[in-house]
Design a protein around this nucleic acid. Structure first.
Lengths: 204, 204
DNA sequence: GATTTAAATTTACATGTTGTCAAATTAAAT
DNA sequence: ATTTAATTTGACAACATGTAAATTTAAATC
């Protein structure tokens, strides 16, 4: 099979600056998506609206993200990236004790507080859509693993139950419920106190 | 203005058995909605699908519930009706103490456990749709009020914070997170233990 | 049993949103 | 100036919601 067909004999082409512009478009769209999600919820988030607010065409949104679910996944990835999960490494490696627990709680509560409305929507989408739910679940699983490690290194009985409680206490949903009841300032303190007693609690 | 226009002079008509059939249709549709919501999530819940599974026409679903949101609200009302909230009255009136707290936790956890997947969807819809969210919020508000009453009657310091914690600990989302981490059997026990320590905890 | 009544069905249509496609346009790279 | 690839433009199909009318069906009344 010799390549004697109509070979277009392309000239090399480096996207260069065009890639930057694409990234800017991507960023603008994701920014718009985050804002609209947090403000108006999921139902009123349309590809049309995203395109308009980010100064591109609806078609471009499709080109860059594929589908609406694609946009959501990108939003989710972005959140995860901004989530300061790198700090989780340090926290897990701290010596077990009060300080580590406080840092653990602090990392999560800080993040939950910073993106509360947006996270509420995203987690909500995970709750109503099994397909998207697996993505959220995977992330929750990681928090559970970290909680398990921390509890195990602290020693004591009922490690499994304690880990379950710590994971649930540091979940976004629990934080959100606390804020809804009390004030956002106090929420982290309450989580920490509950976590402390959860870990010192033994199966009586 | 004499009523000399074409008066149809209607004959009295008692719906009787037809009302029963309408109720059956309503019930069948709601049953289908609950099942499909729990199993497949919200995106794949269509009026067409509901009609098919409940043996009526899509148009009939619209006649009976108005809109899709109407169906959801009816599902929500039904859940609330089945929720055993009547038992909340008794619980709130019990003498303050361990037993009351246990009953309080038990009523909610029992309900959460019975409809977990369905509740996850419904609460999820509340989280992504501000309009529907107010309905959920109103119900959460009631749990918060009950929690506040219980905490206040128990006396002690920091009633507001304790109430917030109790409300959050008895939220559906916290229960769901616990079940996801551990086992459903143990979840209620964990909630109860955390609630106990939350209420005995003072602001140190 | 014939007639009346109202619900349910059938049929049709308007709207909004997603997703896809192909041709034309634009701007960067060569 | 030419080539390249992204963006835009315009069009379309698919699907779901919601609405409206005429018709059919079955229960209630006489």
């Amino acid at each position: 099979m010799t390549k004697r067909q109509a070979e277009p004999e392309k000239r090399p082409y480096d996207l260069g600056k065009r890639l930057e512009q694409m990234d800017e478009s991507r960023a603008a769209i994701l920014r718009a998506a985050k804002a609209q999600l947090a403000a108006n919820g999921y139902r009123r988030l349309t590809m049309e609206g995203l395109a308009a607010e980010s100064g591109v065409t609806r078609q471009t949104v499709h080109n860059l993200f594929g589908t609406k679910t694609g946009v959501l996944e990108a939003v989710f990835d972005l959140i995860a990236l901004e989530s300061g999960m790198e700090r989780m490494r340090e926290v897990v490696m701290l010596p077990p004790g009060e300080a580590q627990l406080a840092r653990f709680v602090g990392v999560f509560c800080g993040f939950w507080a910073k993106n509360r409305m947006l996270l509420r929507r995203v987690h909500g989408i995970g709750a109503i859509d099994p397909e998207f739910g697996t993505v959220i679940e995977a992330r929750n699983q990681r928090r559970r693993m970290a909680a398990t490690r921390i509890v195990q290194r602290m020693g004591g009985d009922d490690a499994a139950q304690k880990a379950a409680m710590l994971a649930a206490l540091t979940s976004f949903e629990f934080f959100d419920a606390l804020v809804e009841s009390g004030s956002e300032m106090e929420a982290e303190g309450m989580v920490l106190r509950l976590a402390r007693s959860a870990l010192s609690l033994s199966q009586e």
